[in-house]
């Protein structure tokens, strides 16, 4: 803890937060725009957020708050798990076989630029229920990020590592598990980081349109009911959940790629 307090990085981070809160406070209190004066200041939001009896029904003491968090987290991680389970094998297959890559590359290239929200109507019409539609929309961008980064990772593998493994008697299976996957792991994890970020922002958008629960829904619902503090609470919670999710992935990556940390001699 002492080390944290002495580190320059910590204080800079704190200053960054302080600055944002100050701008927020100043804009609400002193900007002579009518629309801004209806906005709660930081203290008001925090008071509402921490209140045992919140004015608009959402705070850390209400069950509804956790119901929304749970719904969103479950969707985000389900979509992420699907993206991981389908994207990594697909990316490896595309990197492994140039014939398969020829099939898949054009298709991925065409589908990837379609914005996730553009899929919402089709997803609702085709999939059973709004829940599946929201997860599907959340999954899409995460899936493309995972697939394409895995592909880049496989292509980035040093050809001499593959040759060396063959010299040492590796079978095709050995090549996959001993060279291709560990060799592509750094880029795979870059992809997973992006995928997790993408999952959270597509999720919030999807929930605004098609869900009955979740933080995205909560934002839209609070907007319709003109409950400003609740909007901000939901936004802050989304940020926090995204941050925690990314940290989990980064930690997992660091643990799996100990060789990289130790080789460079620093944590990042």
């Amino acid at each position: 803890m002492g080390a944290v307090l002495r580190s320059r990085k910590f204080w800079l981070m704190l200053a960054g937060y302080g600055l944002v809160l100050a701008i927020w406070y100043a804009s609400v209190k002193w900007v002579p725009l009518k629309s801004f004066t209806r906005m709660p200041d930081p203290l008001g939001v925090i008071r509402e957020w921490m209140s045992p009896e919140p004015a608009y029904g959402i705070s850390i003491f209400t069950a509804a708050y956790y119901k929304h968090i749970f719904a969103s987290t479950l969707r985000a991680w389900t979509a992420f798990a699907l993206a991981l389970g389908l994207g990594i094998p697909l990316g490896i297959l595309m990197g492994w076989s140039s014939r398969f890559n020829a099939y898949a590359e054009a298709l991925v290239g065409l589908l990837r630029p379609v914005p996730p929200l553009a899929w919402v109507p089709l997803a609702i019409l085709l999939l059973p229920g709004a829940e599946a539609a929201v997860v599907f929309v959340t999954f899409l961008v995460a899936f493309f990020a995972t697939t394409l980064n895995t592909l880049v990772g496989v292509h980035a593998i040093d050809a001499d590592h593959i040759r060396a493994a063959k010299c040492l008697g590796a079978t095709r299976r050995d090549l996959l598990f001993d060279v291709i996957i560990p060799g592509a792991l750094p880029q795979i994890f870059t992809g997973l980081q992006i995928a997790m970020g993408a999952a959270w922002f597509s999720l919030a958008a999807g929930e605004m349109i098609a869900a009955q629960y979740g933080l995205g829904f909560l934002i839209m619902d609070a907007y319709n009911l003109i409950q400003y503090p609740t909007i901000v609470i939901a936004m802050g919670t989304l940020g926090l959940m995204g941050f925690i999710s990314s940290a989990v992935i980064r930690q997992t990556g660091d643990r799996l790629m100990r060789w990289r940390l130790e080789a460079t001699g620093s944590a990042r």
């Binding site: 001499d160 590592h161 060396a164 010299c167 040492l168 792991l185 080789a263």
Partner: peptide, 14 residues
């Protein structure tokens, strides 16, 4: 017939 490569090819993850 094992090759030792010009730029080195130890597996960095092992």
């Amino acid at each position: 017939r094992v090759v030792v490569f010009q730029n080195g090819a130890l597996f960095p993850w092992m």
